[in-house]
Design a protein around this nucleic acid. Sequence first.
DNA 1: GCAAAAGTGTTCTTGGTACACCCATGA
DNA 2: TCATGGGTGTACCAAGAACACTTTTGC
Lengths: 249, 249
Amino acid sequence: MDSREQILQKSAEAKELYLPHISVDPVVFGFDQNELKVLLVRMNYKKQWLLPGGYVRRDDDLDEAVVRVLKDRAGVTEVFLEEFGVFGRKNRSQLYFDEFDDTLFQKQRFISVGYYALYNSSEIYPVADDVSEACEWVYLRQLPEIVLGMDHREIIEKALLTLREKISTKPIGYNLMPEKFTLPELQKLYEAILGKSLNRGNFYRKIKNLNVLKKLNEQRYVGAHRSPDLYSFDMENYEKALENGLNNW
Amino acid sequence: MDSREQILQKSAEAKELYLPHISVDPVVFGFDQNELKVLLVRMNYKKQWLLPGGYVRRDDDLDEAVVRVLKDRAGVTEVFLEEFGVFGRKNRSQLYFDEFDDTLFQKQRFISVGYYALYNSSEIYPVADDVSEACEWVYLRQLPEIVLGMDHREIIEKALLTLREKISTKPIGYNLMPEKFTLPELQKLYEAILGKSLNRGNFYRKIKNLNVLKKLNEQRYVGAHRSPDLYSFDMENYEKALENGLNNW
DNA sequence: GCAAAAGTGTTCTTGGTACACCCATGA
DNA sequence: TCATGGGTGTACCAAGAACACTTTTGC
């Protein structure tokens, strides 16, 4: 079955199952090699990259819909998810399926609800669903070079801005870092999200004064240099600290 | 024509004109008598208060839809508007029209997009449309006493939280205060939004150091006390200051 | 020992907080 | 002249920025 037939078949199913005109688009962030990355899919049908979005079942809460979509389209579970914006321009989505006629479910006007998601299991590789030929992590650094469909570049940019705003009130560090990590690694995450470099000494003191980390009795071997200490989050203090907001970065 | 017939008639029109399953709910804030108030309507049909929400025309951008809805339902124009959240629980709206059958447009499931709006013309009174018996400002203080339909209390609460978060990055002062105002009045606005009292001396110095106000050569007569100076916003500096965020309150 | 990265300490400055004092006004 | 609220000054303290110094590691 070619991608065209596949799309027509999905359309028929979708009309029964999903609410019209509403979609969800999760922007899944990961942190790897000291860089931020996002999860994208490339459809069989067109060679553009897209967010792994989907539709809302008639009997789904909106928040449940995103969870289901992420699982079905990318095999991703256990993520922190939060709504960050709505994308409702009237011609934002219809053009993508321009070669089909207007009865196609996927071709109608969609108002899309953006969710950002944080995913900390760098080892697990996402799996593409049957309408996608690829489902891959793309580093933010690489985004300018690739072709993104619809308004998904704009959605990703707003998601990143939201991360930046929420860095002091949401468990972003906890959800993007692995179980154990070093302070220089955590600092790189903050720098990646904030888009600026931070002073090491000040970062250390600030993060330590917050009392949200537990120092472990281990170091990470990093080759020809001093081995940095490993830390993990002290969840109790971490959540308490987030309630009041951490500090200003 | 009674309210029942009216609703049935609207339903027929709506099916042509509007996207199904999507609504917008503006939370219009005003500041008056040193207190925050919100704009609510009471429908002819049920005696509950609701936000002056509405639907999205098939040829409207989402952002245009809210503007139109506010104009049609409350006669309100010239407001600052910004999306702040989506309300998508599956049974949030259907119950309101429970006595009608399921073909009624208004009774379907709606995912609603919340917008907060800032309105600074305290003299102009809102006008109700033909499906509402009232369109009134309600002080936040009075909200606990009144009956709000659907999940609109929750929507208002989230709007208020959003105001609080954005107080340093959005022109909230400018859009809620009249052209000319005194520093004590501005302080009351900040206190109302933040839900806590601020030290007068510190507030004065802080706001003045921001250089966003122009001191006018006038005072306001306030009776038996010293006449406070009048100020207005210096738009150029104000917008510049908002880009970096004002300060932390 | 040297280079490079991790970790710690010190100093300066800024900005917030608390509070005191003076000013203006009408009763 | 007193009470009340507006306007300003000051002193203290905490937190941030900049930068220097020490420690650890492999070569």
